[in-house]
Nucleic acid binder design. Structure first.
Lengths: 204, 204
DNA sequence: CGAAAAATGGATTGTCCAATCCAAAATGCG
DNA sequence: CGCATTTTGGATTGGACAATCCATTTTTCG
């Protein structure tokens, strides 16, 4: 893959390019992001970009990895505390606040890429799928803990997937409608359902 | 908008173009669909397309309307019977079966357009938002009936939105993972939750 | 220090594609 | 029938954009 030997400076340039590409693709879409814009945004030359990435496709795959990390980072430490209803609600609040800060723009950084590439870019689709899997696993961990503890009745795997799908749908509709309500309602509904399967006394 | 006087033949040509454009854009994305492909698919000439549509943007807006109708059509008559748990489950089965038939390809016809245009095409975003609203209203109607009848405890508006977001998230993740499970789990979870708020005895 | 490898500059190329243009044919309508 | 309007043909244009190329500078490391 990255067969080349990277110097510290080179690694930094590469990182700058990926970060800017991620930002641009997030803000305006993949096809709509041109290499020239990327040059302008990074102050890099054309040969620099093609020195670090074989083509736009390779860059896109790097962006997907970058965004997957960014998403998981954004959710720490909350994502590691999904083993109580209170933890779930705090996580929900974080996600909702984040969308408010974004003025409901952008949607999910990997979901939007997935949607744009699913039918015409198998490698990108698989990379997004793998990102989703990491995310789903992180969510499931908390629910599994609840279940093992005996506090949760119901399949933690199903509920984790239900949370992530609610989140994805909520982000999409929030992006389209430019209001945070779909995200709130989607997450609240699934969390309420989890709470109803729980022995724990729901926090006020 | 459509200021021109359309003859029967002209209307038919226009319809053919929109249908083919909808199909192509659904299968490969908006930007990836070229006017030349569209010509090939419809057997129409360049001037025909530009005779009926000012530009690609106008065509896209027509496609959004077309797909909104198509989605609602697909769900009849089930969408008008969402006032019982059985009706909700039958609707769920229809949606799941449909994705299976599609081999989990394509996702939601308007959701994918929304995702591709939300940040760089305000008119398209609004058209998709309006399509979502019609959809949401159709779902809410059934739940409102349940609620008025006294069978449902809980806000029909919130639950309708939760159903639609679950559906959107489920469709997206089904498309990415190429398995129908996310859609099944997402819908089942919300429907189970609705059932738990219901006086009705859930059908076996 | 000095040769090899890595990083950068920037002009260029070839392709693709949305949109235009100038007709000609078909259809509607009085 | 005959004029106006609508529909169709297809070649063309102009711009945008991914990717290449050749050269120069900088860094690494023995």
């Amino acid at each position: 893959m990255t067969a080349k030997q990277l110097t510290a400076k080179g690694a930094e340039t590469r990182r700058r390019i990926v970060a800017a590409a991620a930002q641009l693709m997030y803000e305006q879409g993949i096809t709509e992001t041109t290499m020239e814009e990327l040059r302008a945004a990074t102050g890099a030359s054309s040969s620099q970009i093609y020195h670090y990435f074989a083509d736009k496709q390779a860059l896109l795959l790097a962006v997907i990895d970058y965004q997957t990390e960014a998403i998981l980072d954004l959710q720490t430490p909350h994502i590691d505390r999904l083993d109580t209803i209170g933890g779930l609600r705090a996580w929900r609040d974080l996600l909702v606040e984040n969308q408010k800060r974004m003025q409901c723009r952008g949607g999910c950084p990997i979901g939007t890429i997935g949607s744009q590439t699913a039918e015409n870019n198998p490698d990108a689709r698989l990379a997004v799928a793998s990102g989703y899997l990491r995310w789903e696993n992180a969510i499931r961990a908390g629910l599994t803990t609840m279940h093992r503890r005996g506090d949760l009745d119901g399949d933690p795997g199903d509920l984790a997937l239900a949370l992530l799908t609610a989140l994805q749908g909520g982000l999409l509709m929030t992006q389209i409608h430019r209001t945070v309500r779909p995200l709130e309602v989607a997450l609240d509904t699934v969390i309420d359902h989890i709470a109803s399967l729980t022995r724990e006394i729901p926090a006020a």
